[in-house]
């Protein structure tokens, strides 16, 4: 099944090669120029004294991943569903709904990771960041867990919402939250203490925090990882059930 979804994504890339490549190259560049460069002139150093353009690098990687994954999930579970296209045909294939959710998500994550790797190479070239292999591997691990969490949230929204205007507004709010509420660009102590405390309990920010803890102390927060994997599992089941209910199967 994953093979079928992967081939389909490749065909879609091939069929829309020029716009796909354009977005592939320009999305990380635009993000860097419009977000990182001006913020660097405002913040300059992180609270722990690291230069902002180096500190923000993993945050930008997570944001690129979030943005790259969104259209894939949106197309699969919202656009095709509300327009009564291929999703019904896929749902009739001999797989459970949870398997279909899993398959689509894995393929989306693979594509998002490829895009993120490209963005990573680009940023390390521009900012000249040096990371050892262990740091890169741990960043990738945290990113994959984060994308599984975010992907499930995207799927939850795409399945639950039927109107396009509601979907656009919700997505807009979600992106504001992703970009500013997860300490990707602005550290949480910059928020008022109450909001900071609330944001610390946001499970979507756990993978990024795990990465930061690993970078600064070398420790792995196993408890946090366990919670994240548990949440991902619950979301999988919920999305499978929702898809089944939505398709009245």
């Amino acid at each position: 099944m994953i093979n079928a979804f992967l081939k389909r994504r490749l065909w879609l890339w091939k069929n829309k090669l020029v716009p796909s490549i354009f977005l592939f190259f320009f999305m990380p560049v635009v993000l860097f120029l419009m977000v990182s460069v001006p913020l660097k002139n405002i913040i300059q150093y992180s609270i722990s004294g690291i230069a902002y353009d180096i500190w923000v690098f993993p945050g930008l990687i997570f944001i690129v991943g979030s943005i790259a994954l969104y259209p894939i999930i949106y197309r699969e579970f919202f656009d095709l569903r509300v327009h009564k296209k291929v999703l019904i045909n896929i749902a009739l294939a001999p797989y459970s709904k949870s398997q279909l959710v899993y398959g689509s998500l894995v393929v989306g994550i693979i594509e998002a990771i490829i895009m993120t790797l490209f963005a990573g190479f680009l940023y390390t070239y521009i900012v000249s960041i040096h990371m050892n292999l262990l740091h890169i591997a741990f960043l990738l691990l945290c990113l994959i867990i984060y994308l599984f969490l975010m992907g499930n949230i995207y799927i939850l929204l795409s399945i639950s919402i039927d109107a396009i205007t509601t979907m656009i507004l919700t997505s807009f709010l979600l992106f504001i939250f992703i970009i500013f509420g997860n300490a990707f660009l602005i550290e949480l102590p910059f928020f008022p203490p109450m909001i900071e405390t609330l944001l610390k309990f946001n499970p979507v920010s756990y993978p990024f925090r795990c990465y930061q803890i690993f970078i600064s102390t070398g420790a792995i927060d196993w408890f946090s990882f366990t919670i994240q994997i548990f949440i991902i599992y619950i979301l999988f089941l919920l999305n499978g059930f929702l898809l089944k209910t939505k398709l009245r199967q």
Binding site: M1, N3, A4, K7, R8, W11, L12, N15, K16, L80, K84, K85, V86, I88, N89, I90, L92, A93, P94
Partner: peptide, 25 residues
């Protein structure tokens, strides 16, 4: 199952639509 309304993937070719189903099964 062939439904009444067209439910092919609009951005795939006819052959890719057919092959996608073959891959699914």
């Amino acid at each position: 199952y062939v439904p009444y309304e067209n439910d092919l993937d609009p951005w795939l070719t006819i052959e890719q639509n057919i092959r996608f189903n073959a891959n699914l099964y």
